[in-house]
């Protein structure tokens, strides 16, 4: 399934957050959206996920939806968005209960999602008992349970510490290799983008525009290899130089009161 964003414009009041952004998400790729804070990358993702109405422009889906997919376009939230009054397995089941599924099928999907994210032993725990990394694993398990064709991940690791982030990057790559969903991955961290993405889309700061799309030709599993390090470093420098100046300006900006 392909997802296209066509000529998206979005205003918050008199402020233009996104101006004329068009981008296509190819089937099975990881597309990273990076840019300084306030560049509208999360806004763009919300629009792609159908939970924010753009001022103008359209979101188009092409291709067939896989039969098992209950929620073809599925969101993973930065702050995990877990229901604190539900246990881990209930949180995952919450995404399934309104579909016409048998109890057995719900149980099967929940168990499967928990197994794949290493949460099997935590099924009855409450979110407050879990570490940040485990909470985001629940968020990912909930997304996996509905068999998405496209995963929209909104800075999924930015609330986590560096070690946990490292572990979860590997987990995300594993699940991507298995099911090959398309992933749109919003981040302000170009290192994360370098580890995960097939293409990196750099957004400029307000009003958000596409500044550049960088293709990373090295397959994800080879990016740790020694002989590709010079190329990876080059790509990293290129991305950073692209964001740096904008990040400085964004950093010095006063927020609207």
């Amino acid at each position: 399934m392909e997802l296209s964003l066509n000529r998206i414009v979005h205003n918050f009041g008199s402020l233009t957050a996104l101006s004329d952004v068009s981008i296509k998400v190819n089937e099975g790729e990881i597309l990273a959206l990076i840019g300084p804070s306030g560049c509208g990358k999360s806004t763009l993702l919300s629009i792609a996920g159908g939970i924010l109405k753009p001022t103008s422009g359209e979101v188009v889906v092409r291709g067939s939806i896989p039969d098992a997919s209950l929620n073809p376009i599925t969101y993973v939230f930065q702050d995990f968005a877990l229901l604190p009054w539900k246990s881990v397995s209930e949180n995952v089941a919450f995404a399934l209960k309104h579909h016409r599924l048998s109890a057995v099928e719900i149980e099967r999907r929940v168990t499967n999602a928990l197994e794949r994210t290493g949460l099997k032993d935590f099924a009855r725990a409450y979110p407050k008992q879990l570490s940040g990394g485990m909470r985001q694993r629940v968020g990912i398990a909930r997304a996996l349970a509905v068999s998405p064709a496209i995963l929209l991940m909104d800075e999924p690791l930015s609330a986590l510490d560096a070690q946990t982030r490292e572990l979860l990057i590997e987990d995300i790559l594993d699940l991507w290799r298995r099911d090959k969903p398309s992933i749109v991955y919003v981040t302000h961290n170009f290192q994360e983008a370098l580890r995960l993405a097939n293409r990196v889309c750099v957004l400029s700061r307000r009003p958000g525009r596409i500044k550049e799309i960088v293709e990373i030709e090295i397959p994800q599993q080879d990016r740790g290899r020694r002989d590709v390090q010079p190329r990876m470093a080059e790509l990293g420098e290129h991305l950073w130089s692209n964001i740096r100046d904008e990040a400085i300006i964004a950093d010095r900006e006063l927020a609207d009161v």
Binding site: G49, I51, T74, Y75, A81, L83, F94, K97, H98, R142
Partner: peptide, 16 residues
């Protein structure tokens, strides 16, 4: 609001 948006992103109906 994010919890509500989460539910909406999974197409959970209003009653639920």
């Amino acid at each position: 609001r994010n919890l509500i948006r989460m539910a909406q992103s999974f197409n959970v109906p209003l009653g639920r």
